[in-house]
Design a protein around this nucleic acid. Sequence first.
DNA 1: CAAGATTAAATCGTGCACGATATTTATGAT
DNA 2: ATCATAAATATCGTGCACGATTTAATCTTG
Lengths: 144, 144
Amino acid sequence: METKALPLSMQLCFALYSANHAMAGLYRPMLSELGLTYPQYLVLLALWERDGQSVGELGKALMLESNTLTPLLKRMEAASLINRARSQQDERSVSVSLTDKGQSLEAKSHEFAACVANALDQDGDTANALREQIFDLAKRLRKA
Amino acid sequence: METKALPLSMQLCFALYSANHAMAGLYRPMLSELGLTYPQYLVLLALWERDGQSVGELGKALMLESNTLTPLLKRMEAASLINRARSQQDERSVSVSLTDKGQSLEAKSHEFAACVANALDQDGDTANALREQIFDLAKRLRKA
DNA sequence: CAAGATTAAATCGTGCACGATATTTATGAT
DNA sequence: ATCATAAATATCGTGCACGATTTAATCTTG
């Protein structure tokens, strides 16, 4: 009974790890010019979609908890990208909103998307289908 | 000219980020019982495939550099999973090899793969095709 | 209303990821 | 042989991710 190892090339986990790294590597130089990190960019994406979310809502959108988000958001506040304010209705909750600077970066996100599309070097429908498959994969993994 | 933001749900970068997190989340409790982290498990996968690789070779396989690998490997050495030794042919290079303990964990990797397959809840061919698409995606992104 | 339970953020400690730099060993050109 | 260069790890500082715990506000229930 051989217990031959499954090579990296057969591991879905490594495919995801590798692709996620490669994507981060593609974004890094572009984001770096804006003084942004990759997770900070994801926070901006979430806020461009809906401004004024609480830390908990952001966490739900990005699958992160306050132990990760709080320091990250503080750095973004220090960089004048967002404001953080306790909610009046519920003093436990902190509302995160975009500054003018944070809003102004939204235009760049389209350049980035175009750059990714270019890197993919395949037609849009194929890329969209793959994206949906990956989201679906994430959903299945989370459910398990 | 609207500059409407691209929502998270349309971002391939977030799909990968999310799926990678979900996969890590699935592995975490299983690996935790073995005292392993997810990147440490990837190192083991690489070594089960070919034992005795140098730090640089491991880095090439996993897309990591010595600044990440060296401390990680030292922790794995401290946990008696691997040995690190300078090569005699070239004293610059460090060869990483599995201990008995490190080898013995290989059997578990098959359970993990089965667990992932079960979580996917879809037939193997579909999963394999998706894996190849994701590897291909990573390759395109890296080339760009 | 008061006491306990629940919820939302924050804090703390550890490990990973990476840019920049340092250190050590090997190689190459003269 | 010597010196410059290159190569392989290692070190350092910053930021992300997460388990565990803490703090403060709110809700619940007697």
